[in-house]
């Protein structure tokens, strides 16, 4: 699929959100769209998915089957999880039996089985986001577009997202994903597109980029905030473990003091 000189603005006299974006993504490729809030990441993804039409330029060779996971799943609908997903599977062209099978498979896989009879407005944000993920996967997509897919998901499902992406890539699909939490470090082979001032630039990976693992000790009460901060800075949290007196890290003379009383130890890189 290729975006050729794509320009887009939301109102006739409004500012251009995308300015002359020209980019191509092929089968089996995944690209991560990065950038500050409001720079047009979601807009770019929606143009790619076919939700938004470019004001100028065009999108060519878009695969026939597109799965789009919006940033916020529209949960304000009078359906149960099962009824909604079955309906969307039928809309996607699956037969009744195939739709039922797909819904059962994806609700089981995403931990939605016990929510099948629950109405969409009653779901928590994270569970609703899983329904959004499920509807995009009911029919194997040739292009999967994920807008902040990790937002609100529990740890188990966050781990599942790269797995789903790998499956789409293995079937020669393409994947576009935006992320501001630093989770896309889980996608080591991904191309990295940065959107700024309406323009898109692609980071070229440097061959000599090496990775180090740093152990950090923080008080238990600050674990969540520290993890969030590190992720926001683009670091990957490998694991979080309780501290023990035997393997507690000793501060090195040249290193800044990590914490006064380190009851929890995490590894980041």
């Amino acid at each position: 699929m290729r975006l050729e000189n794509v320009w887009l603005r939301y109102h006739r006299r409004g500012p251009w959100v995308l300015r002359g974006v020209d980019v191509r993504i092929g089968p089996g490729e995944v690209a991560v769209v990065l950038g500050r809030n409001g720079v047009g990441k979601s807009t770019l993804l929606q143009v790619a998915a076919g939700v938004l039409r470019p004001g100028q330029g065009r999108v060519t060779d878009r695969p026939g089957r597109v799965g789009w996971v919006p940033e916020r799943f529209p949960a304000d609908q009078p359906f149960t999880v099962a009824r909604y997903l079955t309906g969307m599977a039928r809309v996607a062209g699956l037969s009744r039996a195939a739709a039922d099978d797909a819904v059962t498979a994806w609700t089981d896989r995403l931990g939605l089985a016990r929510f099948r009879a629950v109405r969409l407005p009653e779901l928590s944000k994270g569970t609703a986001q899983k329904v959004g993920l499920a509807q995009a996967m009911l029919r194997p997509p040739g292009l999967l577009v994920l807008d902040e897919p990790w937002e609100g998901l529990d740890a188990a499902t966050r781990e599942l997202v790269p797995e789903l992406i790998d499956e789409v890539l293995a079937a020669d699909g393409a994947v576009l994903v935006s992320d501001h939490r630093g989770e896309t470090i889980r996608l080591p082979g991904a191309r990295r597109w940065t959107v700024a001032d309406g323009a898109l630039t692609e980071e070229t990976p440097s061959a000599d980029e090496t990775v180090a693992v740093v152990e950090v000790a923080v008080p238990s009460a600050r674990v969540a905030s520290t993890i969030a901060r590190l992720r926001a800075e683009g670091h990957q949290i490998l694991r979080v473990r309780p501290d023990t007196s035997t393997d507690a890290p000793q501060p090195q003379p040249s290193a800044p003091p990590a914490a006064l009383a380190p009851p929890v130890v995490g590894e980041a890189r």
């Binding site: 929606q46 998915a49 076919g50 939700v51 597109v66 799965g67 789009w68 919006p70 916020r72 799943f73 529209p74 304000d76 609908q77 969307m88 809309v91 996607a92 509807q135």
Partner: peptide, 16 residues
Amino acid sequence: VEPDVQRRLAQVTVGV
């Protein structure tokens, strides 16, 4: 009555 995002999801699935 259909949320805007749901309408867009339908559009992605079946076309404009």
